[in-house]
Design a protein around this nucleic acid. Structure first.
Length: 193
DNA sequence: CGCCAGATTGACT
DNA sequence: GTCAATCTGGCGG
């Protein structure tokens, strides 16, 4: 397996978001490889995006406009949400990792999540971070190296007809363009409300 | 330091 | 479907 390079993330957030489907998220946790295949993602832009955290200013905004391919982790409703900073030069943006299909380390992930149901293990942004023991410590850490125990590798590229799109989940005011992408029919996509 | 909205989840009617 | 838990980050005082 090989790491996805930093340049991959220096493009329009929606493009990166779509192409991240099928990629493999790896977490080295106490010597155990916890791995999963990304099946659901959302794109966020900079201050021009009404749903973007960049609107609120502060450190999260600066991070979204900063180096690409670093983790952006922040808390909401007492969960941690994992994003990857991605944007074209001079703009802001990030990809929210919303759901993934478990591959390796399922037993350890079930212990971390305290559930036995594999389908519910990684099928939501808050569930995913808990199962992978991802928290604020990873904020601003680069994902293009394996040094920090969290990184993203190339996976199996989905066929275009297997990629579905919709509006983003849980946002008060969305852009007119669909910015949520997921693998059609995949069992591990988060349930819509 | 207090206030409050929120890219959620899981328990319950 | 409904609803509250009780966390984080930004902001105002």
């Amino acid at each position: 397996m090989s790491l996805i390079p930093k340049e991959f993330y220096s493009r329009d957030p929606a493009v990166v978001t779509r192409e991240l489907l099928g990629a493999v998220l790896v977490r080295l946790y106490g010597g155990v490889r916890l791995t999963c295949r990304i099946v659901e993602t959302e794109a966020y832009y900079g201050v021009e995006d009404p749903a973007s955290r960049a609107r609120r200013g502060g450190d999260l905004a600066r991070t979204m406009y900063g180096d690409v391919d670093v983790a952006l982790v922040y808390g909401v409703h007492r969960q941690w949400l994992l994003n990857v900073v991605a944007h074209e030069l001079g703009t802001g943006g990030a990809v929210l990792i919303r759901a993934a299909e478990p591959l390796e380390g399922v037993e350890v992930m079930m212990e971390l999540r305290k559930v036995r149901c594999v389908r519910k293990l990684l099928s939501g942004p808050g569930r995913l971070t808990k199962a992978l023991a991802v928290d604020k410590r990873f904020h601003k850490k680069p994902l293009y190296v394996s040094d920090y125990g969290l990184w993203i590798e190339w996976g199996v590229t989905p066929r275009p007809e297997d990629i579905a799109e919709s509006h983003r989940v849980g946002v008060a005011s969305d852009l007119s363009r669909p910015l949520r992408f997921f693998l059609r029919g995949n069992l591990y996509v988060s349930r819509s409300r």
